[in-house]
């Protein structure tokens, strides 16, 4: 399955307000492309979680918001990239309920359930990269 990028947008995340700006950009795009309200809610919530993770755990990073197509469907893909401390044990962090920030620890695991595709890679000391995709339902 080849995925083609139709539009691309890049945003910096280096303060708490940026989390809101990323979320708004994702919401605006999803609504403009006719995603249903449940999908909009799921995608914007996942984008909020992941951009907040960048801000809270890595202090700065970027969000790449892309509109993609695989030939049949349109989707929105958002990638969050930071050069923060990285995640030493991805399995532990993805299990849900584990947090190094005294929070609920549901951001990563919950985001995964909110989207259609979820990809995470992280290296301690190097940074973290999370990519999510949500396809538009017919």
């Amino acid at each position: 399955m080849t995925v083609r990028v139709l539009s691309h947008q890049e945003m910096n995340i280096d303060n708490e307000d940026d989390v809101v700006l990323v979320r708004r950009a994702v919401r605006t795009l999803a609504e403009a492309r006719g995603f249903d309200s449940f999908a909009v809610s799921a995608l914007t919530t996942a984008a909020t979680e992941l951009s907040r993770n960048v801000w809270v755990h890595a202090r700065k990073g970027k969000a790449f918001i892309e509109e993609v197509t695989d030939g049949d469907r349109t989707g929105i893909q958002v990638e969050f990239v930071d050069q923060g401390p990285g995640i030493p044990d991805i399995e532990w962090s993805m299990a849900g309920g584990h947090s190094t920030a005294k929070s609920l620890g549901l951001g990563l695991s919950g985001s995964k359930r909110l989207v259609d595709a979820f990809h995470i890679e992280s290296e301690p000391g190097k940074g973290t990269r999370v990519r999510i995709t949500k396809w538009k339902r017919f």
Binding site: V40, S41, A42, G96, L106, G110, R113, L114
Partner: peptide, 13 residues
């Protein structure tokens, strides 16, 4: 809202 309810369930809250 219904959307919020569903999102919260999926988040696992």
């Amino acid at each position: 809202r219904a959307q919020v309810a569903q999102t919260l369930v999926q988040l696992g809250v």
